[in-house]
Structure formats: C-alpha cells, structure tokens
C-alpha cells in the first residue's frame, strides 16, 4: 500500500477525477479511490477532508447538502469549471512528472 506522503499533490487529481461526471460525497469518494486503485491506495479521512476544504476554498469545487434515501444528510461536492481546468492542468503536470522520473528508472 502506498503512503500518503508519496501521493501528496495528486490527491486533488483523484478527487477531481471522481467528480468529473457526477457529484459525490466523502465516503463514496474514499471508497472509489480504494476500489479504482485496487486497494493499493487508501486515502486517510483527514487527507480527504483537508483536500475538500482546500479545493472548496480555492473555488475548484462547491458543496451542498443532499439527503440519502435512508434519511441521512450528507454533504455532496460538485466540480466547478475552474476545477475541470485544474484537473486537466494536473493531468498534464503528472504526464511530465512521469516522463521525468521514468528517465531515472532502470
């Protein structure tokens, strides 16, 4: 399993990716990250919530209250246009990082 230190900087990318097509809430996003990464990466709750706060403060996502069928009130997150732009920017950045690091891999 990967530690969160290594993933620093790309947590936002994962969250934005998961919000691209539909709005979602905290645990659902955490569950999807675990699932899509084949359990190789589990995002800690504090990391996830910190990212939500930061992204919201900077205008990349917005939040609203939604109600589940079982009556539980949940905070849902929605990506903004700026968020989509940031996602694309981060993707480009990652490709570059990957290329650079790859050059040093035997």
């Amino acid at each position: 399993m990967i530690g969160s230190d290594v993933m620093r900087g790309y947590n936002d990318l994962m969250i934005l990716f998961l919000l691209l097509h539909e709005d979602s809430y905290g645990y659902e996003i955490s569950r999807q990250i675990r699932e899509i990464s084949h359990e190789k990466y589990v995002m800690k709750e504090t990391t996830l919530y910190s990212a939500f706060t930061r992204l919201e403060k900077l205008g990349y996502i917005t939040s609203y209250f939604g109600t589940e069928t079982n009556g539980k009130r949940r905070t849902y997150y929605r990506i903004t246009e700026e968020g989509r732009a940031l996602y694309r920017e981060k993707c480009g950045e990652w490709k570059l990082v990957k290329e650079v690091v790859d050059d040093f891999i035997e």
């Binding site: 905290g26 645990y27 569950r31 709750e45 504090t46 919530y49 706060t53 539980k72 949940r74 905070t75």
Partner: peptide, 16 residues
C-alpha cells in the same frame, strides 16, 4: 463542520 463530516465518513466506513 469538519468534525461532523469526518464522523459521517467514519460511520459510513464502519457500517460498510
């Protein structure tokens, strides 16, 4: 709010 959100996430995870 942070505390409530974290509790909600932890509850969801616990229940699952």
């Amino acid at each position: 709010r942070a505390k409530e959100e974290l509790l909600s996430m932890m509850e969801d995870k616990y229940n699952e």
